[in-house]
Computed example of a mutant assay.
Amino acid sequence: MTTTSPRIAVLGAGYTGLTIAHLLARRTAAQVTLVNDRDRFVERMRNHQVAAGHTVRHLPLRDLLRGSGVRLVVDRVTRLDTTDRRIDLAGGGEPLTYDLLVYALGSHADLDAVPGAAEHACAVAGVEQAERLRDRMGAAGTVAVVGAGPTGLETAAELAETHPGHTVRLITGGALGRELSERGRDHLRRALDRLGVQVWENATVAKVDANGVLLEGGRHLAADAVAWTAGFRVSGLAAQAGLAVDEHGRMLVDATLRSRSHPEVYGIGDAAAALTRDGHVLRMGCGPGGLAGACAFHAITARLAGRDPEPLRVEADALCIGLGARDGIFQPTGLDGTPRGRTLTGRPVALIKKAVLRTTGRYNLRHPGVSLLAARQR
């Protein structure tokens, strides 16, 4: 690898990929190329609002990258050749080559989890699917939301608040709010009851059809539309390229976000299983992804300068769940997901959530250096 002007390719222009591309281009002598399959940045954390019918502005990547020095390639990656360090593209143009690769392709909904989901359900993880659900909501009297993690909770609450005349059914395979403290669970039940959301706990979906969902045990719940938020999966490109991955296909990286099998590759965001120096694997999500991206930036710049990088340092996590425009739950957790600390609820959390969305989806993208403050380095 050249030491004066290395070629760095960043795959994926989500929150983490876009931010690290900015930083590497501005703060190193590297030639940075960002590859993404669309020409606009999508605020994934707002997709539940898109599904409910709210207007969410998608920002052109060229506007966000203007003046940064990043070269943007709008195309879909079809293959990685880690031997020749080459990236093949669907558009048929010349393959891209690199000295360092940052793999930030994120995750998408697992619509293959049960029969019929791919044909009849709308995922909220992708904006096109969220728009499809939005279009269905006009004629849907009843909508079933499958999955009661943070995305499912936010989707159910947003749909119920925006469409008070509709019936919203929330289906979860376990107990409602199991990742929350007792105070958080109590508040969640009151909030969903206030919004009129019907909750089905300990109910496993066996099949999705044109008329709703079939539960294990044989009961059928009617629905004109089904929102799928139960589980995520990652691209198979890393595994196909021979990179070390876990059982879910997430790239295995060390505490500096470098691939355990290919030292010229870094993995950040949902597509990588980031291991902290304390041995915990970060959960999928924007917050942990931002920490990993900042750590990867520090690691890359340190190694380019001939220094040993500091490992990822994360001591705690937190969930910030919006429950419509005026309610929410903020739950501090340990890295293992165990609730701890004081649970905040109500309108103050809704204001925090709005500030997070505004900062992450607008300010940080234009001023990426702010994200480095979140990564604690010695």
Rank of each mutant, 00 (worst) to 15 (best):
A109Q: 03
G287K: 01
G92Q: 07
Y363F: 12
D270G: 04
T4P: 03
R307W: 08
G322E: 13
E216S: 11
D246Q: 03
A206G: 14
R376S: 10
A223S: 11
D209F: 05
G322L: 09
A355I: 03
R169S: 12
T82G: 10
H187F: 15
R57A: 09
V124F: 09
A121R: 02
S235P: 03
A318E: 15
V127S: 08
A244S: 15
D81Y: 07
R189P: 08
L335G: 13
S107Q: 02
I87T: 06
R86E: 15
A273Y: 02
P311D: 02
A271H: 05
L335M: 12
A350Y: 03
A130Y: 04
C320D: 10
A30R: 00
G306C: 10
A121G: 10
G106V: 03
G231W: 03
P339D: 10
M251G: 10
H367I: 14
G152Y: 02
G174T: 11
V56C: 13
A175R: 10
G138L: 11
A25L: 02
R326S: 14
V168M: 06
A273N: 01
L11F: 05
A299I: 06
D63Y: 01
L180V: 06
A272K: 03
G324E: 01
E43I: 14
A21S: 14
V197K: 02
R378V: 14
R347M: 11
R71E: 15
D308Q: 14
R260Y: 04
T19D: 06
D112M: 09
N202G: 08
T142M: 06
M137D: 01
G141Y: 06
A222Y: 07
R342A: 11
A30I: 03
D88Q: 07
R277N: 15
L64P: 00
T345V: 15
L275A: 12
R313L: 13
V234E: 00
V102I: 13
I300Q: 00
G53D: 08
D327K: 01
T172A: 15
S259L: 06
E128L: 12
Q198P: 01
G53H: 07
R7C: 11
R358C: 09
V208W: 05
A121V: 06
G337T: 10
D75G: 08
T142N: 07
W200Q: 03
M251Q: 13
D317N: 15
A222W: 05
T167P: 00
V314K: 00
K353A: 11
H248P: 00
A160M: 04
A222G: 10
V124M: 11
A203M: 01
A104S: 14
A117E: 08
A374I: 07
D99R: 04
A156Q: 05
G184Q: 06
L365W: 03
R250N: 04
G231L: 05
T142F: 03
V370C: 07
A273Q: 02
A109L: 10
A113V: 09
